[in-house]
Design a protein around this nucleic acid. Structure first.
Length: 869
RNA sequence: GCGGGUGUGGCGGAAUUGGUAGACGCGCUGGACUCAAAAUCCAGUUCUGGUGACAGAGUGUCGGUUCGAGUCCGACCACCCGCACCA
């Protein structure tokens, strides 16, 4: 037979057109079938698809195609997270318009995604920069506003004085703007906030119900929300320079039980009291300035010494007459947690202990671990934070920590000097950005009426297109006319809000929009009631907190504003691993792009050479693909060369989906070889097997029986592995089956066996269907080769004959004293006594026993025999 | 420091949840086909000893439970990730 090859790139185009023509991935609501919503995190349209996208979307596509074949009504949409800074940067650097740049990128990436053969319903495509989309987002903003979930307040922001914009914390590197390099300033600006803290407790509690989420993500969110239960308490202040209005100091503590161990109070350098005192105290002013100069990076904090400034003020101990605690300004007290003030109990808090040792304050243990003598217990340099009984604590002595907390809280509440309080780390979400390429905040500022929402009938507030990027700052703010508006209440000339929304707002509800992407309301209630929650969400771990927490918040806010009726948007979440690649450096130590490297594996030694110059390169470690290390690969080129199926198959082979995968040419070639091989196998099988639809024989020869068992076992394994997202083991099952199938084809040549011919046909059909989620084009090719005019993509998932999954005779291992010595093939339902007898007759067993007496024989049916001698 | 996770051949990884450790792939070794190469096919591939049948060792380390442990328990080691002066 001539060496035939499957021309993947050409045939793949053909099959994609066939799917498009048949419109088989278009989805409508259909209450007669169970629904399944599978979603991958939508991409930012940077311009090129990268390997990580391919991996992410392929996984989702396997699930989508499988579930569709299983009879589910599958929603599998795609869109674009299209607002954001890169478009404006491109505008500044290359003098292109953000809009044009973005839509061109979308067009390029759409065709790249289509070349992967994803079973997406493109009719539902949305880009967050579409006017229709941000129109609806503005409408949602107004609904949230009316529900009290939106407010405006002054807050501190990172301000880049050169680019004249607010920077996110992540964009501040070593205290300087990431783009301009200018030292970032702290500025007080009025910002819009979404009241995510209103849901803090529910967002936390509901994490326990998210069984389909990775534990890791739930833990991260739990920590981020950071709930702590404690007590707000008032200390009476006295001393020289005490402001007239400041009679008390309010602190937050989670350990009110340790109040009798308190030896000082401390306030943050940012505390209003510190500022007041600093007006009359130069030294304090300098100390505060010094604290503010100190960096807030991890390293700085790690190295920073605990430092304090004694204000000379004292705080009266609430339960010990005459005891006065010195009040310090201390560098380790954060202004934005609790009240920005604490009482220090050195024996039971490491920071307080470090501080106390430095300033020689008393350290009195008040919680004594079991077995320690309260009189002798000394914490040394390590604060004791474990359980124990109270001591040295007046009326608390002998109580447990919990009882003591309760006692103190009760007494202070009775005196009106304390209040139980739950504190969260979670802050409200500041969404104002001084940027052009984002969703305009639909507000009009009127001198008389204040910040007034734009009436819904006047939406959308559209972005103007005639903007300039030649100078830094917000183009909306300096636009000659766009700002002009009239107050919707009083009709006076007013100004539009020129801030736009954080792009995380855009991605917080797109999954709901996909349910009815052209609806004239933001969210179509009927559609979301049918489709939501997303049954399987797939994306990167980097969104563990922000995007996933914001979306959970939005789902609740949508429900509270009548747009939906559920709280959790994503029933199951899967976080896939990254795609890594080897790195290469030339003699000068410069990174060499991976696509300019040729690998030579001769004599077992992997060596790298530069393609054009031929010089040898140094092979570096495998690392995450990144532009800086030049170890990215362009999936487009691989798809053009080997085809989408090979790329998809490779992406799912070998590595478990949650772990990182290493992209290697050898691996891609292996996948390509297998695609070719499978095609040959099915082609050969189709040539001399039973005709399609031939009647099932009454009896099967042993060879046919064996092939059928292998076939059905494979189909069963593939189903179960896809259900559990264990794509790598599904792939392995198909490989294993291909080996058996090929052996059967060899046998078929010599045997004139009609039942084997039938089994070969069955095998060819089932394997074509089972590879369809992974290699959908090749599956169609095979299906056609088998004589069908229909599409595999429209076939139901093959049923498995349960009877073929269990063998009549089974081979079990026989151990002697726990070591495997032989094996035994018996009838599946063989009697225990027979197995015991047969086991003792085995050569390997006899040899191992060496004539010793058999003490005991353990027979685990269908599993193992263990002879104890 | 706190939290989460991972340790299995040369490599990526399997292992029906306590029952034949190393499926499947990559790589490598030998062979067939070929003038040659590519492609393809066949055989082998945990380590040690042995021509061999076979024997011994073996899932990060040490110990325990069990007829039997990669899997369960205890103590440790290493690496990765997240958070971090949160009172």
């Amino acid at each position: 037979m001539a060496v035939d090859r499957y021309n993947a790139p050409e045939r793949e185009k053909h099959w994609r057109k066939a799917w498009d023509d048949a419109e088989i991935f278009r989805t409508e609501e259909d209450t007669s079938r169970p629904k399944y919503y599978v979603l991958e995190m939508f991409p930012y349209p940077s311009g090129r698809i990268h390997a990580g996208h391919v991996r992410n979307y392929t996984m989702g596509d396997v699930v989508a195609r499988y579930k569709r074949a299983k009879g589910f009504n599958v929603l599998h949409p795609m869109g674009w997270d299209a607002f954001g800074m890169p478009a404006e940067n491109a505008a500044m650097e290359r003098k292109v318009h953000p809009k044009g740049w973005t839509y061109e990128n979308i067009a390029a990436m759409r065709s790249q995604l289509q070349a992967i053969g994803l079973s997406l319903d493109w009719s539902r495509e949305v880009a967050t920069c579409d006017v229709e989309y941000y129109h609806q987002q503005q409408s949602l903003f107004l609904d949230f506003f009316n529900k009290g979930l939106v407010y405006r307040k002054k807050s501190k922001v990172n301000w880049d004085p050169v680019d004249q914009t607010v920077l996110a914390n992540e964009q501040v590197i070593d205290g300087c703007g990431w783009r301009s390099g200018a030292p970032v300033e702290q500025r007080e600006l009025s910002q819009w906030f979404l009241k995510i803290t209103a849901y803090a407790d529910d967002l936390l509690a509901a994490l326990d119900t998210l069984d389909g989420w990775p534990e890791k993500v739930r833990v991260m969110q739990r920590n981020w929300i950071g709930k702590s239960e404690g007590l707000l308490m008032q200390f009476a202040l006295e001393g020289k320079g005490l402001p007239a209005k400041q009679k008390t100091l309010e602190v937050f503590t989670t350990r009110p039980d340790t109040i009798f161990g308190a030896s000082f109070c401390a306030i943050s350098p940012g505390h209003p009291l510190a500022a007041t005192l600093a007006k009359k105290d130069k030294a304090l002013k300098e100390f505060i300035a010094e604290c503010q100069r100190m960096g807030t990076s991890e390293e700085d904090i790690e190295r920073a010494e605990k430092k304090g400034f004694d204000t000379g003020l004292t705080a009266a101990h609430p339960f010990e007459e005459g005891v006065k605690l010195p009040v310090y300004v201390a560098n380790f007290i954060l202004m934005d947690y609790g009240t920005g003030a604490i009482f220090g109990c050195p024996a039971h808090d490491q920071r307080d202990l470090d501080f106390a040792r430095k300033y020689e304050l008393s350290v009195t243990p008040v919680v004594i671990p079991e077995g320690e003598n309260p009189k002798k217990f000394d914490v040394g340099d390590v604060a004791y934070i474990g359980p124990g009984l109270l001591a040295n604590s007046s009326f608390l002595d002998g109580m447990t920590v919990e009882a003591a907390k309760d006692e103190i809280a009760g007494r202070l509440e009775a005196r009106g000097e304390g209040e139980r309080k739950i504190n969260y780390r979670l802050r409200d979400w500041g969404i104002s950005r001084q940027r052009y390429w984002g969703c305009p905040i639909p507000i009009i500022h009127c001198k008389k009426c204040g910040a007034v929402p734009v009436p819904k009938e006047n939406l959308p507030v559209e972005l103007p297109e005639d903007v300039t990027f030649d100078v830094p700052g917000n183009p909306l703010d300096r636009h000659p006319t766009w700002k002009d508006a009239v107050c919707p209440i009083c009709g006076m000339p007013s100004q539009r809000e020129t801030d736009t929304m954080d792009t995380f707002v855009d991605s917080s509800w797109y999954f709901a929009r996909f349910c009815a992407p052209r609806d004239n309301k933001p969210v179509n209630r009927k559609a979301v009631d049918y489709w939501l929650p997303v049954d399987q969400y797939i994306g990167g771990i980097e969104h563990a907190i922000l995007h996933l927490l914001y979306s959970r918040f939005f789902m609740r806010a949508l429900t509270d504003t009548g747009h939906a009726a559920i709280k959790e948007p994503f029933a199951r979440l899967f976080t896939q691993g990254m795609v890594n690649h080897e790195t290469y450096k030339d003699a000068s130590g410069a990174w060499v792009p991976a696509d300019e490297v040729r690998i030579d594996g001769e004599s077992g030694q992997r060596r790298a050479f530069h393609v054009s110059t031929g010089t040898e390169l140094q092979i570096g470690p495998v690392e995450k693909m990144s532009k800086s290390k030049k170890n990215t690969i362009d999936p487009d080129a691989i798809i053009a060369h080997y085809g989408a199926d090979t790329t998809r198959w490779f992406m799912l082979s070998d590595s478990p989906p949650e772990r990182d995968v290493v992209w290697s040419d050898e691996g891609v070639q292996g996948a390509w070889r297998f695609a070719q091989r499978l095609w040959r196998i099915v082609a050969e099988a189709s040539e001399n097997c039973a005709k399609k639809g031939a009647k099932q024989p009454d009896a099967f020869s042993p060879a046919a029986e064996e092939l059928r068992r292998a076939t059905h076992r494979m189909a069963d394994a593939v189903s179960k592995n896809i259900e559990n997202l264990r794509f790598n083991t599904a792939v392995a099952a198909i490989y294993g089956f291909a080996n058996k199938f090929e052996a059967a084809l060899q046998g078929q040549k010599t045997a004139k066996d009609a039942s084997l011919n039938w089994a070969v046909r069955e095998a060819a059909e089932l394997v074509s269907q089972c590879i369809a989620p992974f290699m959908p084009h090749l599956a169609e090719e095979c299906w056609a080769r088998l004589g069908y005019n229909s599409l595999v993509a429209k076939q139901p998932w093959p049923g498995v004959e349960e009877a073929l999954l269990v063998d009549d005779t089974i081979t079990i291992a026989v151990q002697v004293n726990g070591k495997r010595r032989d094996e035994l093939t018996v009838q599946r339902d063989a009697a225990q006594a027979d197995i015991e007898a047969a086991a003792l007759e085995l050569d390997g067993v006899k040899r191992a026993i060496e004539g010793r007496a058999v003490k005991k024989i353990i027979v685990v049916p269908q599993r193992i025999v263990n002879v104890v001698a």
